[in-house]
């Protein structure tokens, strides 16, 4: 299911213009990372995908649906959105109830819903926490619950807003694994992240936003190689990209294997 954004502008009721003409196409099954400085408009942009916000001008459509013509409830069957702050999203008394809410609400048959919940709980390794109240979990595990509850909705498009913040190495690997699995299933994954190393290792396409506009958009390798332009939106290239540059390697390094092969050749 394609996402088409055409000259999207958005102004908050306070008068602040957060998006200043964004045009983008995201193809079905693409894995896209969105990066950019605090306040660049990343969260504002993705909140348009599921209709939480409606364009001030311009348009966005999810498949053939233009978001202004469909309710958020309806759009939820196409776009799942994991909030930046999980506490805005969680309200059930235990983890299992939380993860089950979405699929029930979308009206899946019970057997199908149960299966989706089971799979989401397994993918995020939450089974031992099924009966815990989300508010007794640390913020990092609450984020994982938020993730699971969106995955369980089985939407063709999934958006993660800063999924790795505060997660340890094991959980970051778990999230990378979830994204890889969603990719195998042919889903579109759009992830906002400040973790540029994570970005380099897990995404093919990177969009850099700056002050409500698209600054760069392209293959990870091409975008990450442009340190000077990225600096305009307060992003630094990944550690290995910077190292490769300092060592004078010709190609833009994004992954460890690539780095090792390059220095072996040098």
């Amino acid at each position: 299911m394609k996402i088409i954004i055409n000259n999207l502008h958005f102004t908050y009721p306070t008068g602040l213009e957060a998006l200043k003409g964004i045009s983008l196409t995201i193809n079905p099954g693409e894995q896209v990372a969105i990066v950019g400085q605090n306040g660049a408009g990343k969260t504002t942009l993705v909140r348009h995908f599921n209709g939480l916000l409606k364009p001030t001008s311009g348009a966005i459509s999810i498949g053939e649906w233009e978001t202004t013509k469909y309710s958020t409830a309806k759009l939820a069957s196409r776009v799942g959105y994991v909030f930046q702050n999980p506490d805005e999203q969680l309200f059930s008394r235990d983890v299992l109830a939380e993860v089950s809410f979405g699929p029930r609400n979308l009206g899946y048959e019970k057997s199908k819903a149960d299966e989706l919940v089971k799979r989401a709980m397994a993918l995020t390794e939450l089974n031992d926490k099924a009966e815990t109240n989300p508010y007794d979990l640390s913020p990092t595990w609450r984020k994982m619950v938020a993730l699971a509850s969106i995955i369980a909705m089985d939407t063709p498009i999934i958006i993660f807003d800063e999924p790795t913040t505060g997660q340890d190495a094991v959980n970051v690997a778990r999230i990378a694994n979830v994204i890889a699995e969603l990719k195998r299933e042919g889903r579109t994954v759009v992830t906002i992240t400040h973790d540029i190393d994570f970005c380099a290792e897990n995404f093919e396409r990177i969009i850099a936003l700056a002050k409500g506009q698209v600054l760069l958009d392209g293959l990870a390798r091409d975008v990450l190689g442009q340190g000077e332009i990225l600096a305009q939106t307060y992003v630094e290239p990944p550690q290995l990209t910077r190292l490769g540059k300092r060592l004078g390697l010709k190609e833009t390094i994004t992954k460890q294997d690539q780095f090792l092969n390059a220095i072996a050749r040098d």
């Binding site: 340890d168 190393d197 550690q239 290995l240 910077r242 300092r246 072996a264």
Partner: peptide, 28 residues
């Protein structure tokens, strides 16, 4: 624990004989 990509790359490089120092790096 998470380690820096520099440390991780140098550990791997050491196994292939591409990192010769005794100490591993943690900064650029």
């Amino acid at each position: 624990f998470g380690i820096s990509r520099y440390t991780s790359a140098a550990r791997e490089a050491r196994k292939r004989g591409l990192w010769k120092k005794e100490k591993l790096p943690v900064t650029l």
